[in-house]
Design a protein around this nucleic acid. Structure first.
Ligand SMILES: [Mn+2]
Ligand SMILES: [Mn+2]
Ligand SMILES: [Mn+2]
Ligand SMILES: [Mn+2]
Lengths: 146, 146
DNA sequence: CAATAGATTTAGCCAATGCTAAACTTTCTG
DNA sequence: CAGAAAGTTTAGCATTGGCTAAATCTATTG
């Protein structure tokens, strides 16, 4: 039996976690964009590309390019030099992002970390928690949250 | 006062979380590679590119290219057609990754999620937890762990 | 010890996500 | 309402991290 085949089976199982990470990373940016656009619309009535760029801390040109992809993906609509709107699917993704974000951030606070850490860490963690873990966090939160 | 300047200050603060994510993502792949290489060396005496590729679930050629970057970054050493070695810095990063991974995975288990979910979710979460959150998880683990 | 099977690297492609500088459009103002 | 200021997009570049197919090296074995 060839050397490389020897451990193929065990490896196949283990690689599932890394596949998940790669897939999470693909949706991650889209989720943060739509959630941020939803926040801007709610807070200020409209979302401009510049505001998105400022809140994300990236260049304007980067946002323009990313929004084009999100438009192709059916998440946002926009016309040149105008504000950005979310499609139905975009709002759905934004709401789901907010839900996860709220649970993760509240959970971290209930666990005893500072507000700033909860805010920062939850921005990354939210994209890598399964529904099962979210349920466990919500359960903990119901018992120990404020 | 120009429109875009109006909210610049608030945005600056908020963008810190997204900067952290972008920086986390840059180190993420390197961390998983060195941790995996360390595991292979410990389990099997040596780490071959092929084994790394199989465990990650990516093509061989991808691993070759990434290892070149890790070599430039001073994390691994290798010669063509030979096994991969970690530098001192590589081992340090691997050990630190293992430490975080252990805490996060143990924590998820203590929180009540299944072994498979803990294994999969921790692979992504480990890269986005601050030291403060790790301490909080370790504290919880000390009280509620198995 | 030569042929071949297996392992590894190279070459060349692609998409995503970042940047700066230049061009263009919109908005404000005298 | 013309010119300037502000806002936005385009153009062009770089890096990362994927892939497949072809080339090359190593190891086995008859
Ligand atoms: Mn979010
Ligand atoms: Mn986020
Ligand atoms: Mn790890
Ligand atoms: Mn990982």
């Amino acid at each position: 039996m060839p050397r490389a085949a020897k451990h193929q089976r065990g490896a196949k199982l283990r690689s599932a976690a890394f596949s998940r990470i790669r897939s999470d990373h693909q949706s991650e940016l889209a989720e943060d964009y739509v959630e941020l656009i939803a926040d801007l619309i709610d807070e200020r009535g409209e979302a401009r590309g510049t505001d998105v760029a400022m809140r994300l801390g990236v260049a304007n040109a980067t946002v323009v390019k990313t929004l084009k992809r999100l438009q192709d993906a059916g998440l946002v609509t926009q016309e040149p030099y105008r504000a950005i709107f979310l499609t139905g699917e975009g709002w759905k993704m934004a709401e789901d992002g907010r839900r996860k974000h709220r649970i993760v951030e509240g959970f971290l606070l209930a666990l005893g970390v500072s507000e700033e850490t909860a805010r920062i860490d939850s921005e990354g963690i939210e994209h890598h928690v399964s529904e099962e873990t979210l349920r466990a966090m919500a359960r903990f939160l119901a018992r120990n949250g404020r």
